[in-house]
């Protein structure tokens, strides 16, 4: 767990955007994720799936970005009047533990599979 980076890979689908996270989502790197999500919002893209399978570490600044992003996604109305959302897929066991400790498990729609998460929109 000596990882020092956060790597974010973006894949765009017709109705949704997938961000694959690898590495550390800590105070150092949380702003990078916020900016990537912000950039999608600015393009009117508010149906977002985060694939967390490669995430090794999350601390509270990362958790805050997730809460804020989901709230903002749901606040934004698309032209077709469907609300946006931020949904999560493939939580590693340690990340799931932090979610359970902080009550985050109930705050997000969490999928075991990326395809399911994308198809849920």
């Amino acid at each position: 767990m000596d990882t020092t980076y956060l790597e974010i890979t973006h894949r765009s689908f017709s109705r949704t955007d997938l961000l694959e996270l690898r590495g550390r989502l800590d105070a150092m790197h949380a702003p990078e994720l916020r900016q990537r999500i912000e950039a999608l919002f600015e393009q009117g893209r508010t149906r977002i799936v985060l694939d967390l399978a490669g995430l090794e570490y999350v601390s509270s600044p990362g958790l805050r970005v997730l809460i804020e992003a989901r709230k903002r996604a749901r606040d934004r109305r698309l032209p077709d009047l469907e609300a946006g959302d931020l949904r999560l897929a493939r939580l590693p066991v340690r990340i799931r533990e932090v979610f359970d400790l902080t009550g985050f498990t109930n705050l997000f729609q969490i999928h075991d599979d990326v395809v399911d998460a994308i198809g849920s929109f």
Binding site: I67, L101, G103
Partner: peptide
């Protein structure tokens, strides 16, 4: 301290760091 069982609309992500320290 964060209200761990509050719904999304009432959560702002504040206080989580101290809360985690206490838990861990």
């Amino acid at each position: 301290r964060p209200r761990i069982d509050a719904p999304l609309e009432e959560r702002d992500g504040g206080g989580l760091g101290l809360y985690l320290i206490d838990q861990l």
